[in-house]
Design a protein around this nucleic acid. Structure first.
Lengths: 226, 226
DNA sequence: GCGGCACGTCACAGTTTGGTGACACAAGAC
DNA sequence: GTCTTGTGTCACCAAACTGTGACGTGCCGC
């Protein structure tokens, strides 16, 4: 069984110990630190598989730790943040975080996110992903459907890749606008819808009954492996 | 009891039949193939829950089958290998196998491994919560009842999620109005009731005798894990 | 049993939401 | 320049959703 070596950085001792205990129970091996400095000092020696960083830390904050980790290697990073701190999401994503979890978090949720990030990191190492008839080659930036090459425009491709990065997860329009278009302003625009529609027209056998990109009314879109 | 649909790939007919018989006796439903090609051909149609692959196979070997399965989806894989073949373990884990079993294996041991892998796969898949027949996937925003997907409207989903967030606790209408509807004004309306009723109609086997969402007269509603 | 209250039920119209096609504009390609 | 391609926006429409109020029903204390 794959057991992750987790690097946990959290300054609040009680939260830190609770998380460490919970994650250990889930079968992970956890090393925790109270500050970013300590964590960065030991990161080379411990070679963790994933880092979980609290955003609010004394000294170097979590986002900055994330940025420095990214300079070191491809270590996946999950950021922990206090509820409702929207601004942080943007900064965190820019710093290269792979996922974002809002505290307080249930251990099983965190565990699921960790596994999802690890899975994604693993599959990201391969250039090609296959979902039934649909093959997405990230190296060549090419998409084929049942062997036939599909031409997607840059924006369409970016959106599709973003959806595919989180298979089975519902992504809302605001998130997609930020991730694909860098739009920080909350625009009530039909931009995402229009782009999804264009992708569907190209990859869905019957665009009216989508197989890949599902609409979740009131929430957003979800890429479903068929 | 959870019964798994098992895909078994093993070229030796006597071993294959013995395993199939044993696993069937344990209550699993087994489909077996002699080669990886056949298995891959049928994997989409059969939708197994787990694959058990012999490493040594004519044609495509088990590790390669595992690799290809991984590209298709998240199907858990157990590899079967001959005793003492240490090298394979590394290769197998790299290919994404979830577990490794050395032949000859006792059926009860294999069964235990299968259940362990399935349990892990289930908890790893996403942030899902299970209450008996009812499965709520908070990542995919999907609700299934006895395996069948239930369509909930956005408001219904938000209300159900709010109730589920506090299992066993009574939530009053005022709280729910604020949490789900953002209503600050205290409206004595049938809004919450109507919505609960709509959810019940969809998820309760007998809406008149609710199993999941209980009414607490004079206070509010309570989500009870059955 | 009875009155009063809390909750269940239902239909419907107004509102919201997303799909869709048209179109304008910008950026290159030529 | 002209043409092509990509992209954002808009208007319109059908479908889906939802709040509301009227009324029915069951529960509870008396």
């Amino acid at each position: 069984m794959r057991v992750a070596g987790i690097l946990l950085v959290e300054d609040d001792p009680s939260v830190r110990m609770a998380l460490e205990l919970a994650l250990t129970r889930q079968g992970h091996s956890v090393t925790s630190y109270a500050t970013g400095e300590e964590a960065l000092d030991h990161i080379r020696a411990r070679r963790p598989e994933i880092a979980i960083l609290d955003v609010m830390l004394p000294g170097i904050d979590g986002v900055e730790v994330c940025r420095r980790i990214r300079k070191l290697d491809q270590l996946p990073v999950i950021l922990l943040t206090a509820r409702g701190d929207d601004l942080d999401v943007v900064v965190g994503l820019e710093a290269g975080a792979d996922d974002y979890v809002v505290k307080p978090v249930e251990p099983r949720v965190l565990d699921a996110r960790i596994r999802a990030v690890l899975r994604r990191a693993e599959s990201a190492s391969s250039d090609r992903i296959t979902f039934g008839d649909l093959v997405i080659d990230r190296g060549a930036l090419k998409v084929t459907l049942a062997g036939k090459e599909i031409h997607l425009t840059p924006t369409e491709l970016r959106l599709l890749l973003e959806l595919v990065r989180h298979p089975g997860q519902v992504l809302n329009r605001r998130y997609l606008l930020r991730a694909v278009w860098d739009h920080t302003h909350i625009a009530d625009s039909r931009l995402v819808d229009a782009c999804v529609q264009r992708i569907r027209a190209k990859i869905e056998p019957k665009p009216a009954e989508p197989v890949f990109i599902h609409t979740v009314r009131g929430f957003g879109y979800r890429f479903n492996p068929p």
